[in-house]
Design a protein around this nucleic acid. Structure first.
Lengths: 143, 143
DNA sequence: CAACCAATGTTGGCTCGCATAACGATAGAG
DNA sequence: CTCTATCGTTATGCGAGCCAACATTGGTTG
């Protein structure tokens, strides 16, 4: 996403360019784990929530239920996550990290941290701090 | 793209969330023209370059040649762009805005400007200015 | 000149992230 | 019991980006 001329004046456009770079970095660094951004997202959500149902997890992450099914399928296949029906409510699945999942999550988290570091390597802590605050306002702004 | 817990600490993630919002806004505001972000991108590139070949345009915009073919096809079909073989080099196509294209571009540009305004409505000019500088560094960073 | 290589436009197909609709099963409210 | 809402699942589509193959054309070099 090269930005050029008029496009370089529009922050909505620059934002897309910056995000694309971020996603590519994320993707590269996560590649060693064989999983993708969205898998990390799910793992991070589970780390935060502990054992929970798919619907809870989906709502917490703003993640579509349909996609969550597939993502959890990948993670389960890899032994990172256990999925069992909730005995108290047979519609629900209880999902949580496995032992292996916890390790994998730490590994993914290191990779993501590295990507983050590379992305903002040229910035001072003060700059990062301020940028972070703006980003929070922008990202959370309308949801 | 709800951001949550650990994800809210990672700027690479917040960036994706903010960009998603920006893209949705852009998409909404451009909807009145019946075209999409990428069409605007091409129109903006042509406005900057004037008449040029597809390859030039693609390189200037960092746009894949294959996608450019399709995008120009849409724009040509709509009468916004004219495409004629370069008599001096028969491999090339010379592309430029038509009269109608210029008007359409102005219309699209207003829409994009509006999206930009909505996105950053809550920010002071000083905040926008500083954020803009950071974005330029991030977006241009590695291309 | 002939042979080779590079550029150009085009087509087709793939991945990712996001979104929507439909469906069967289950739970809970009236 | 009936009606409605929730949950997990499957399938499908869209937008953006990427890559490989191909025919045509232009240059370069032997």
């Amino acid at each position: 996403m090269t930005v050029y001329g008029r496009l370089a004046e529009l922050d909505v456009w620059l934002l897309s360019g910056a995000a694309l770079r971020a996603q590519r970095l994320l993707c590269d660094y996560l590649d060693t784990t064989g999983l993708r951004m969205q898998h990390y997202r799910v793992m991070a959500g589970l780390a935060e929530l502990g054992e929970s149902t798919q619907a809870e997890l989906g709502r917490a992450l703003g993640l579509d239920a349909g996609n969550l099914v597939v993502l959890l399928g990948d993670l389960e296949e890899r032994g990172a996550v256990s999925r069992k029906p909730d005995p108290g409510n047979r519609r629900r699945n209880l999902v949580k990290h496995t032992e292996r999942g916890r390790k994998l999550y730490q590994e993914m988290d290191r990779a993501v941290e590295q990507a983050n570091e590379v992305m903002f390597a040229a910035f001072t802590p003060a700059e990062r701090e301020q940028f972070h605050k703006v980003l929070v306002r922008l990202a959370q702004g309308s949801e």
